[in-house]
Design a protein around this nucleic acid. Structure first.
Lengths: 244, 244
DNA sequence: GACTTTTAAATGTCTGACAATTTGAGCGCA
DNA sequence: TGCGCTCAAATTGTCAGACATTTAAAAGTC
């Protein structure tokens, strides 16, 4: 791992990459302790602050964790699903907000991915998942709910649907797509009429999942996508009118 | 942004979080220049190395970029799809390798997500995408191809399929799932017989996409999933036998 | 033997300095 | 005027050394 050629990148970036490579291709295993900062500094022939910058880069990606005190130090971190969710959400949110991704594109991606889970969810759902979905539907039907709360409940509903597929890798992938959409969804003002429509479709999805009937759930989800796209277009049109 | 309470986290982590928050909720916009390290140090009442550690954390997430020299400094970075791909792949790869995700689970997730794109791909594919898919199929049929090269070509084929859907957000989400699977796929030794089978199914997928026939493509993809799962089970069984 | 104190190792932070790099302004020269 | 050269200023990158803080093991005490 001592490899550190005379390329034209920052030393701290090179060192971070060297350690990252060692972790990714298995030369360092989970919970293994890295040499102390002083030792790393000597190995790479750089100063301690430079090593520290490299370690902070890795810590930002949750590749390592550090502990103070005797027998502390930097350890290879087991990347948990929670940490992976978090990074996925941050990255997805920024990607959408910084690249002027249209509501249409983001919405299409989200529902396409979600449709991928629906059949599995109908097949494997537990009573718990179903109960969560029903509870969120009930919350969404409450009058006087703010738009933000309605959206948050929407996310929770879809999250439960995804989790019902019982595949943590799928849940991880979907978390980013669904949560990153929320800021875009929050731009929509939900009328009583549109809420009613959405709650109805949610109910049909839950019915399909409850009956282990993937086709019904998928078709309701597809209707929901069409309706959401419709709402999105209305918002964009209204915004365009206001701009003139 | 000067908020910096006396919580029990590292100063550099707190500062990184404060700046990250400012970027995420739009108080800092793309290409905006951050104050210099010296100014940030003064604002947050910490030393320059501490500020630098915070900035390196953000740089590791591609949230900022830095330039040396007069009128250099740290700038809010437009997160490109390429950078997002890269982070997604790194995270997904680590998640799979560190959490003992079974071949079955990863495979199911990958094909479920890919199935989400197939209908769109069949609808929107361009001649370019189709040509890429055909070229990879041709490469895969070459005798004497190493297992690694075969897998790489497999990834390229599926990547083209995903890109054919014409939705960059979908491509971004799928990149991680497909590429992270590669190390697991590389464990499989492909016999001439199994390659023939896979190439045949790839051909059927390409046929479906070419004919704008989503149903055909989806059904071929589904067969490919079943066959891949079958190969995976064989490898695991052989490995278990060897272990006894 | 159980509790307390010490000690050593490690990360976290600060200060101050110098090196490298980039841009713009000033200057000279034709 | 217009072109090119040099130089200064600003900023990040790196280094060295020091001190503070935290933690757990080792040593000491009752």
């Amino acid at each position: 791992m001592k490899i550190d050629s005379t390329k034209k990148a920052d030393l701290s970036a090179q060192i971070a990459q060297a350690i990252r490579d060692a972790i990714i291709d298995g030369r360092m295993i989970v919970d293994e302790r890295l040499p102390s900062e002083a030792e790393l500094a000597e190995q790479f022939a750089v100063s301690r602050p430079t090593v520290r910058e490299a370690l902070k880069r890795l810590a930002a990606q949750s590749l390592i964790r550090t502990a103070r005190g005797a027998f502390g130090g930097a350890f290879v971190n087991r990347l948990s699903y929670e940490e992976a969710y978090g990074q996925q959400i941050t990255t997805s949110t920024l990607l959408l907000s910084m690249n002027a991704v249209s509501f249409e594109t983001a919405c299409e991606a989200r529902y396409a991915l979600e449709r991928a889970c629906t059949a599995l969810a109908a097949q494997r759902r537990t009573a718990d998942h179903l109960a969560t979905m029903r509870a969120e539907i009930h919350r969404q039907a409450q009058p006087g709910l703010s738009d933000e709360s309605f959206c948050a409940s929407d996310v929770a509903f879809h999250r439960a649907l995804v989790d019902a597929a019982g595949n943590p890798v799928l849940s991880y992938q979907l978390a980013g797509a669904v949560e990153a959409m929320q800021p875009l969804m929050n731009m929509i003002t939900f009328t009583a009429r549109s809420r009613e429509e959405i709650v109805g479709l949610h109910g049909r999805i839950a019915d399909g999942v409850e009956a282990h009937d993937g086709a019904t759930a998928e078709s309701a989800l597809h209707e929901l996508e069409i309706y959401t796209q419709h709402l999105g277009r209305d918002v964009m049109a209204a915004r365009a009118r206001r701009a003139t």
